[in-house]
């Protein structure tokens, strides 16, 4: 996904976006949470390519315009 896209107003990460950090944070206070190491995968496809066949990532999966985006609302 292009740089321009990541400049757009960003929402929360898509709820399907996963990274290692999320699994290290069990019981951790928010201030102590590990953010991850930059390796993301999609919880729906279980790969680095989302259901729309675009790559996933911290920037890519905040874009609410993405067809597969799911927010926590």
């Amino acid at each position: 996904m292009s740089d321009e896209l990541s400049q757009l107003p960003q929402a929360e990460r898509c709820t399907n976006l996963l990274c290692k950090g999320l699994y290290l944070n069990v019981g951790q206070p928010p201030g102590k949470r590990v953010t991850g190491d930059g390796n993301f995968w999609c919880g729906k496809t279980q790969t680095i390519i989302g259901p729309d066949r675009n790559f996933v990532g911290d920037g890519e999966c905040r874009h609410t315009g993405r067809s597969c985006y799911e927010g926590n609302t």
Binding site: G38, N39, F40, I48, F55, V56, G57, E60
Partner: peptide
């Protein structure tokens, strides 16, 4: 390089 979509050394 960390692949086609990133993941390289920050």
């Amino acid at each position: 390089s960390g692949g086609i979509s990133g993941g390289s050394i920050p």
